[in-house]
């Protein structure tokens, strides 16, 4: 039972990330491969604030989101000028830069040693120390992320984004400043990813740079590509499949380091096979 709760927490955290990433990749059609960087900034800022000042989790998470948003704004201003492949390449670069900051800014992040002993969230004296209680918190935040996604998708803002995805030149002719739209969705997406990072840090109670590498961003991308782009149900389904699948591999009895590599083989193959035979994913409305 405890194990099931653990898996569900992970599915929900990755569900939030998948929804956030799909807003950029699926709805707006920008191939961003840097979500793990924002996820990591959220996790590190929250962890450092909780340990350094002992402030409330929710306040720390909000500050984490604001810090991430400011960084995403700066990066986004630069990125929104790039086209398809160059956008992807630039986002690779940002992820690698952030990763090496986590790894090498040792006086703050403790580098490869990571940050242990991060406290679990607390509100009005109630601590989410039980995993089942933490699951409820994660589900509530997942529901909020789902709501935000739905609201954006239905709004006129979301319709402009989809138009940019389909034909940016055409929508420019109608007088929309497309770079502004791309920037806003990028920032919103980064904030949701940062929130997922805060949850991750306080759930595991330990973070180190390895959780926020470029490989992790590729993993996040495969979640939404498997689920199907521009589909919120697809994002959740993809998160479910790709989190549960490695667990199955573990039950088959591979040793843990091989299981970790098998996970990579699996999602790499998923990317190749989907591109070859089903580029729209399981339930996507948009194909790249």
């Amino acid at each position: 039972m405890e194990y099931l709760v653990h898996i569900l927490i992970f599915v929900s955290i990755y569900g939030i990330i998948a929804l956030s990433l799909d807003l950029v990749v699926g709805v707006a059609g920008l191939l961003s491969v840097t979500q793990a960087a924002f996820y990591g900034i959220g996790a590190y800022v929250t962890a450092l604030l909780l340990l350094g000042t002992g402030m409330n989790f929710f306040l720390a998470a909000i500050i984490g989101m604001i810090v991430t948003a400011v960084i995403a704004l700066g990066v986004g201003v630069v990125f929104s000028r790039f086209k398809s492949e160059f956008y992807a390449l630039g986002s690779f670069g940002f992820n690698i830069i952030v990763f090496s900051i986590f790894l090498n800014w040792q006086s703050v992040t403790r580098g490869p040693l990571g940050i242990p002993g991060i406290p679990r969230p607390e509100i009005f004296g109630f601590q989410f120390s039980e995993n089942s209680a933490f699951l409820v918190l994660t589900l509530v935040i997942l529901a909020i992320a789902y709501g935000v996604y739905t609201w954006i998708e239905k709004s006129s803002f979301g319709r402009v984004l989809k138009a940019i995805r389909e034909d940016e030149e055409a929508i420019k002719v109608f007088g929309y400043t497309t770079s502004y739209y791309k920037l806003v969705i990028f920032v919103i997406s980064s904030m949701l990813a940062a929130l997922a990072g805060s949850l991750f840090a306080t759930y595991i109670t330990f973070i180190d740079p390895s959780s926020f590498s470029l490989n992790e961003s590729i993993f996040m991308l495969s979640i939404i590509i498997l689920g199907g782009l521009s589909s919120k149900r697809g994002a959740l389904l993809g998160a479910f499949c790709l989190i549960v699948l490695p667990e199955v591999l573990r039950f088959v009895g591979f040793p843990s380091d091989i299981a970790a590599q098998m996970r990579q083989v699996t999602y790499g193959l998923i990317l190749i096979l989907l591109m070859l035979y089903r580029p729209q994913g399981l339930m996507g409305e948009f194909r790249l």
Partner: peptide, 29 residues
């Protein structure tokens, strides 16, 4: 096969990302 289907460059890029992941992981195994 992807070129034959006139897949976009982004599709090819994602497939090649998969190739990278698979080969590196197999080498690691």
């Amino acid at each position: 096969k992807l070129r034959k289907e006139k897949a976009s460059n982004v599709v090819l890029l994602i497939a090649s990302l998969g190739v990278l992941t698979v080969i590196q992981a197999i080498v690691a195994i």
